[in-house]
């Protein structure tokens, strides 16, 4: 068990591939949620996973987190072929996930939620003091606006809960952090802190997967943008390359250059025309 501060950098050297998913597929009854998905994540890299509602982003993340083991395909993590059958497996590998639905226990307080499943102990009993102290340190680093860590999660606002979920993914020593729409409910300052955090994670050589619908955030922090559309890969963009703009990514997300976003833009500035 590692404390939130002073964690050594991951064992993988920067720019080595941490994760390689190949041919991942997953269906729910008659719905083929994922078909033949490939995804690579390198150490020290932020990969943004984007796509429309229902494109399969959360399903892919859950396959990686051990929530829904995939039907087919292979996962290579830190150079080894692995099977991730349970959330405990994912955590032992060093994959930490912030789920879109947060997955917090409403009846437990903030400290219990942060350390759930990996509580610190002294002599076999819970080390409440140690956990509370480190919780405060961690929450301050995220500029969390949480009045008390001893109140039940149910009494927090949506953004405060999201901050707790993010803070939780940082406990332990994950090699890879997956954030499923982490800033959806956050205030301006907290969003900036999360983006800063993502950049700090990259500097320390962690692999980061960020799911977001906010193109500005994606372009601000991501090194690579992977687009999913209707459960399939629909393009990879290297941020910074010429020709990679919000518009080109949106075109891949919606599957057409003539889409709702461009039409709306055209209505607003008729002189620029409908073409991106």
């Amino acid at each position: 068990m590692t404390e939130p501060s002073g964690i050594p950098a991951p064992a993988v050297r920067p720019h080595e591939r941490i994760l390689a998913m190949r041919g991942i597929s997953k269906h729910f009854g008659a719905v083929q949620a994922l078909t033949d998905i490939d995804l690579d994540v390198y150490a020290g890299e932020v990969v943004a996973l984007v796509g429309d509602n229902g494109a399969g982003k959360s399903t892919l993340v859950k396959a990686l987190a051990g929530v829904y083991p995939p039907d087919g395909g292979t996962i290579e993590f830190a150079g080894r072929q692995v099977t991730i059958d349970s959330p405990a497996d994912a955590r032992n590998l060093g994959i930490a996930t912030v789920f879109q639905d947060l997955a917090l226990c409403d009846n437990l307080d903030v400290v219990s939620n942060l350390w759930l499943g990996r509580e610190l102990t002294v002599g076999g009993t819970l080390d409440e003091v140690g956990m509370e102290q480190q919780s405060w340190k961690l929450l301050r680093e995220l500029s969390a606006k949480i009045p008390s860590v001893r109140i039940p999660i149910a009494s927090l606002s949506g953004g405060q809960r999201q901050t707790v979920a993010i803070a939780r993914s940082l406990i332990g020593d994950p090699q890879m952090v997956i954030l499923d729409e982490p800033t959806a409910a956050l205030g301006v300052a907290q969003t900036a802190e999360v983006l800063n955090l993502i950049e700090r994670l990259r500097e320390r050589g962690h692999g980061v997967v960020l799911i977001s619908h906010n193109m500005a955030d994606v372009l601000a922090v991501a090194d690579r943008v992977v687009v999913l559309r209707l459960g399939r890969n629909n393009g990879v963009f290297q941020v910074g390359d010429t020709g990679v703009t919000g518009e080109s990514i949106i075109a891949a997300i919606t599957g057409a250059t003539d889409n709702a976003v461009t039409r709306r833009a055209a209505q607003k500035n008729p002189e620029k025309g409908g073409e991106p």
């Binding site: 959330p87 997955a103 226990c105 409403d106 009846n107 437990l108 509580e119 009993t125």
Partner: peptide, 25 residues
């Protein structure tokens, strides 16, 4: 109240899915 087992019992009672995703068996 003082052991990891007890904490797991409360977590499972509060939200099984969250407990499972936190890696609790």
């Amino acid at each position: 109240t003082r052991t990891r087992w007890g904490r797991a019992v409360f977590a499972v009672g509060g939200n099984v899915e969250a407990a499972r995703r936190a890696g609790i068996r």
